[in-house]
């Protein structure tokens, strides 16, 4: 960050090859958040593709949901949705905490977020086990399982990221008000997973 390429004198000091190699990490400004956001744009395209496929199946299929599909229970997924949306606010507290160098606050809020994520996943598994249709029952069932399952995989990865950051925060001075890319990255990813779920919830349960 200090030795950015904007500063030509800094680079000139390191112009011999050995120094330049050692210097390579410090010489660039940090592009990781930018890169993460670009990656999430690409990731959202998978979901957009799947959503478009879902809407087309729905439009083409003679009756949606097919005859004989039991009335969908909305209470559990509704509560689950509230938990996931709530967790986006919770995780934001963690970033505010670390910006004030409050590592304990970071651990607390990340811990709570991870817990909410796990409750969401458990709720989804509970819902799966009580549904009266399976993956192969019909097109409606297949799209339901694959879309929610693919999103669930992202939640699982998000929980993993949050726990990894939590683990690292146990090391002395790993994160500070200046350096907390991991915290920011996990938070941005978590918001992404949350937004995808809101769209998915509307598509699968509400309309």
């Amino acid at each position: 960050m200090q030795g950015s390429i904007v500063d030509p004198t800094q680079v000139e000091l390191n112009h011999h090859a050995g120094g330049a190699i050692a210097n390579s990490h410090e010489a660039h400004p940090d592009h990781r958040i930018f890169g993460l956001i670009v990656f999430l744009v690409a990731e959202s395209m998978i979901f957009l593709g799947l959503f478009a496929a879902y809407l087309t199946f729905r439009a083409v299929y003679p009756e949606w949901p097919p005859v004989g599909t039991p009335e969908r229970e909305l209470l559990l997924p509704g509560v689950n949705t509230l938990i996931l949306i709530g967790s986006s606010f919770v995780i934001h507290n963690a970033e505010s905490a670390i910006k004030q160098n409050n590592v304990k606050g970071l651990r607390l809020w990340f811990g709570v977020t991870a817990l909410m994520g796990i409750i969401f996943l458990a709720g989804q598994l509970y819902e799966y086990s009580h549904l009266e249709f399976g993956l192969k029952t019909n097109l409606y069932a297949s799209t339901f399982y694959v879309l929610t399952g693919f999103h669930g995989l992202h939640v699982l990865l998000g929980v993993g990221l949050i726990l990894a950051v939590l683990g690292r925060s146990l090391q002395q001075n790993h994160y500070s008000d200046e350096h907390h890319f991991g915290v920011e990255a996990a938070e941005i990813y978590w918001h992404f997973v949350d937004v995808v779920w809101i769209v998915l919830f509307i598509l699968l349960y509400l309309i």
Binding site: A42, E43, M45, I46, F47, G49, L50, A53, S142, V146
Partner: peptide, 16 residues
């Protein structure tokens, strides 16, 4: 970045 993920989506469904 915009196109390839959609192919991935199609291939995932095809794999299923």
């Amino acid at each position: 970045l915009i196109g390839t993920p959609v192919l991935a989506g199609a291939l995932i469904l095809l794999a299923f």
